[in-house]
Design a protein around this nucleic acid. Structure first.
Lengths: 237, 237
DNA sequence: GTCTATATGTTGATAGAC
DNA sequence: GTCTATCAACATATAGAC
């Protein structure tokens, strides 16, 4: 049950793309350039670590170096702010990978490219997978935002297109004796699993395998060199 | 910063293993048998779907069919109740699998057995992986509870033992020409990734691949038959 | 042991000065 | 646009009757 939305709805002007007004020697502190972006960055940092339910608006304000009221001025509510952050985050997890998978390059190269792309990216954004999975798990409504975000970036529906192309390539490979018969959707999920899970479950893996941050980094470096061969190896007839 | 723990600490009797007192025709409603268990089940249901931060004590009480005050009578605080639920959940994700992996059976059989065990179990507890990952991600303190829970169930430290045994078997296999050189920890993570990720990322995968619940169930059924071959195939020299 | 009623603190959101 | 001060609405936790 959602909160009753106390005040009048959408009553305020609600900052559009505001332009750089005259900023001379006002008592107003040094706001770098774009306050909205600053807030979004702060919210990103806090939401990614604590999740939407666990995040506190006060912490976001502090992280962004602004006042809590400004958060509402720019984003109206925590709900909307969290949507904005989730959209931005969701847009970073897969699109490049999907782009590659949907391309016309040979399958062997695509797999190697996806592994490199994904591991390299996630190494510098290690909280992303855990956040996405956490949000999607705890707030089922987020699923709609995910699909709308992804369909907004790629022509047509994402899954079918990638899977169809992949299925073609697998069938060709099988006929040519290069691959063993393999279901396309299973292969896709295998690839995503192998790339993303180690980051999503990072705290667990580090605990179980007794790794510190440096060891984990090294572990991923090793993985970056072996993973494509692992998958290609599995595809051999 | 933790909440200041308002009241006196551990002041109450705090229900130990309470025994079945005389229950005749009292006005007290039909409490099946064990109220503590009932609460734990209700808390499990709510925490697994909403996460610790998102869960509300009132919802847990309702789910358990009891009063909110009873939650505090049995578990003192939301924090402790959530710990109890997390421990119980964490104890179900891996132990059987670790048991198998640490055994003396041939590697090929162990892999097939792990796949069957894990997919079968997760099919009936699909929220488990998302919950564990979400908790570990949003509440880093949970990591300690995880390791203490796991070390409490298996002799010695978990990871090292499993990895050591696995490394031996891999080396033997390589010498016998059955396996290609493979890092043990990478293989372990590959196995976990391939089994657990599809459930952890289930909402995302269903959305991307356009599956409904039935289709997902069928997808896992298919996976159950192919996954071991996929991994074994990757291990061939 | 279990309930109803209530205290206490936190949190998202708003009002209004500048 | 940005701030300080404050409100109103929960959510957790406790008190106390039965």
């Amino acid at each position: 049950m959602k909160r009753p939305a106390t005040g009048t709805k959408a009553s305020r002007t609600h900052a559009g793309k505001r332009l750089a007004v005259k900023r001379a020697l006002r008592p107003t502190p040094q706001r770098d350039g774009n306050t909205e972006q600053q807030i979004l960055d702060g919210a990103h940092a806090v939401f990614l670590r604590h999740g939407t339910s666990g995040a506190r608006m006060q912490d976001i304000a502090a992280e962004a170096g602004v006042n809590q009221a400004l958060l509402h001025y720019y984003f109206r509510s925590k709900e909307r702010l969290s949507e904005a952050v989730f959209r931005r985050a969701a847009a970073q997890l897969l699109p490049r990978v999907i782009e590659v998978m949907a391309s016309e390059a040979p399958l062997e190269g695509k797999i190697a490219r996806v592994v490199d792309l994904e591991l390299d990216y996630l190494l510098q954004a290690p909280y992303l997978p855990g956040y996405i999975i956490s949000e999607l798990h705890n707030h089922p409504g987020r699923v709609r935002q995910l699909v709308s975000t992804m369909t907004g970036m790629t022509p047509e529906h994402v899954g079918p297109r990638v899977v169809t192309r992949l299925r073609q390539q697998l069938e060709e490979g099988v006929r040519a004796g290069r691959f063993r018969p393999t279901a396309a959707d299973q292969l896709i999920v295998n690839l995503f699993s192998l790339c993303i899970f180690p980051f999503a479950a990072r705290p667990m893996l580090m605990a179980i395998l007794g790794m510190d941050h440096e060891a984990f980094h090294h572990f991923i470096g090793e993985r970056r060199r072996q993973l494509a061969d692992f998958v290609l190896g599995a595809l051999r007839p």
